[in-house]
Design a protein around this nucleic acid. Sequence first.
DNA 1: ATGCTCACG
DNA 2: ACGTACGTGAGCATC
Length: 881
Amino acid sequence: MSKNKLLLIDGNSVAFRAFYAIQNFESFKTKSGLHTNAILFFNNMLDNIMQKEEPSHVLIAFDAGKTTFRHAFFDDYKAGRAKTPGEFKEQMPYIRELIEAFGIQHYELADYEADDIIGTLARRVSADDFEVVVISGDKDLTQLADKNIRVEVTTKGVSELTTYTPEFIKEKYGLEPLQIIDMKGLAGDSSDNIPGVTRVGEKTAIKLLAEYGSVEGLYEHLDELKPSKMKENLINDKEQAFLSKKLATIDVNAPIDVAVESLAYSGKDIDKLVPFYREMEFKQQLNKLDTTGLTGTSEPLTEISYEVVTEAATSMFSDGMSLYVEMLEPNYHTSDISGVAWGTKEKLYVSFGDDILSQDSFKEWLDDENLTKIVYDAKANQVALKRYGIDLKGVAFDVLLASYLIDTNDKSEDLAEVAFNYEYYDIDTDESVYGKGVKKGLPAEDSVLFQHLARKVKALASLQPKLDQLLVEKEQHELFYDMELPLSRVLGEMEIEGITVNAQRLQEMKQEFAVQLKGIEERIYELAEEEFNINSPKQLGVILFEKMQLPVIKKTKTGYSTAVDVLEQLKDQAPIVEHILEYRQIAKIQSTYVEGLLKVIQPDGKIHTRYVQTLTQTGRLSSVDPNLQNIPIRLEEGRKIRQAFVPRKKDWQIFSSDYSQIELRVLADIANDQHMREAFVEGQDIHASTAMRVFGLSSEEVTSNIRRQAKAVNFGIVYGISDYGLSQNLGISRKEAQQFIDTYFEKYPDIKTYMETIVREAKDKGYVETLWHRRRYLPDINARNFNLRTFAERTAINTPIQGSAADILKIAMIKMAKRLKEENMEATMLLQVHDELVFEAPKEEIVKLEQLVREVMENAVELSVPLKADSSYGNTWYEAK
DNA sequence: ATGCTCACG
DNA sequence: ACGTACGTGAGCATC
């Protein structure tokens, strides 16, 4: 017979811990502004515990009110506590609602604390045939621990639990559980304002209790103590000690009117939980409910009807349909196509695998520019279909792209998650249908796949008008239709084209670097007088800071920092440091670039990156698999990697063009700063010009060092400057850095005004925008937490600058692609690196290309300052510098 | 899965 | 007093 198990949870303390589990609670808010961090973490904790413990009975206890029986004999009990934040209080009613939806009873009792309720019930039932588990956010309840009562205390927020058994308490404190009360009597507890004995803390209390067993025992034998300050304190505070013990003692005989039978647990109340999660906007939790197969209890999705197609016919296709191409792998260059679905809300077609893609009527539909389609991730579809010789045309709407523009914070990749955000629920997540990790795969029944795909297509059709309306409301119609959607096509073409890589050159480098690394490695082992893993910051830290006793300059969360700036400072103190720096540099090039790139060269001899168009908060692109936006350039050793990037044909060249100072030009424009604008209009060296203005120098007086400092200040301005950041960058004191900043603002008052205005605007509206209305919401901008708030303020300053620059590049790319076609050029756009475009072209076209790229980039948009593009070319990307 | 380090703009 | 420059991706070690 299975034993009964009662789970008792201290609702207040766990909720409180849940609230502080995360610093950044401003990010956990519903659309209507309710904070949900404590609710969410409470939910997750509850889910974990219920799954782990599988209790037969459950109760969550709460404190009743402000005063308890303890206040009757001690007015100041729990006095002096900081006020509970409003963001926490507002969540408590919802936590109770959550508990009810979990099908769990909660209880509170006037004059008593949750501790007393738990203590009373625990003792009452543990006498019977009950195992009791107590969950709390603080250690007060550990005094209850015995062979039938296990006390678990949350740590790390609420994600982990520490088990307090009598054995554990013995080991940790050398005390029996009940002696915890005596310890509190002597040492007190500042959080509850329990006084204890003056100058007696946990350590002293434990020592005394080891000798005398309890507060009573101690005072009986007080004369045996040698005269000391401590003895005096004990004598003076005798009354306080007994009072404190009384305060700390949990009342295990509280008048509780609950029959344990009524606490029997019979499972979640799904009908309450689903709407509750929706109200709280807990998408993952909703998702989880679907996957746990709660058959019959959860609202099943509607079965929608669809037609399975093996032979496509022209009659199945019409203008304005939605299309979904299913791939299970993220890399759409290589992933299999598992199925295709299309249709309208009313009529849905599905087909298994990729057979349909070779059928003419299907191809003709996709290829027809006049038959528009609504899709999810147009670029992925474009690239994947191209492998079947299909040129996807007529994409009129991309749900993924639109949802990104509407809210860049929305990280959902899955259509179901996007749909949930817009209150469309008739769809499963991919994870719930295909699984995840090693178990990921197509469902056993084809009908499950078909149903899922049909739902997706229906969702696309349903979401499109909503999203389109939102784009209008946010003034993002043009951003979407004239910038992002056309760009997605251009990016797709670049990804399909790929860039040719000279694998042989990389192989040579691999050999050379291997030899070099071997040599440095040996030298390091010699100097360390032992072998260790140089790549391990932990092991390296032991060698440098323990064995060799070098001074610790910076620490990380987990140990000593061994980052470059730290090692640079230690260079003179031990020769090993220089070798480690060199090792690091070469090891990085070897593993990330030489070996990394060799791994991703495709059979066509090219590398095909993927640009992620819906990720960054600023509107920039990112590049993955591999990242071609961080190929080394600053140091010569790494820069050589670029020798491996070559044109696809003999007698062709790599051509590169980059915007000069685009971010500062954008700043000059949006801040409307006369001085900075003048410098650009007159074509001056902007950093030198800043140096002259800020330090009051003539152009001859600007040394390279002064220019360097001015450059750092300019960078700082773009990033939302702080004295600390600038001081770190320049290796000067904070005071000096602040002096620079002050002078800068004096000389460029319009920049200062811009910064103040944009931060003000962000605080009022909750978001900032680029020149083309790309939006970034800043939930932390009014946070009380200093770090979060100042970070959001810097972001408010930086995002319009970085984002508008990104917009300009995007416009230039669209225009460039168009012009290359119009001019019938063979030149091809291959890469984008934030302010740079890389092409390959026949030698004969270079002169024309040079003119064309300059013309397009410099006139991509019109600002109040000129845009400038510089270009170069050569046999490899290395030579195009 | 997470943290550290380091590559780029 | 607080502890940071803005935006990314990848490899490696460690848990």
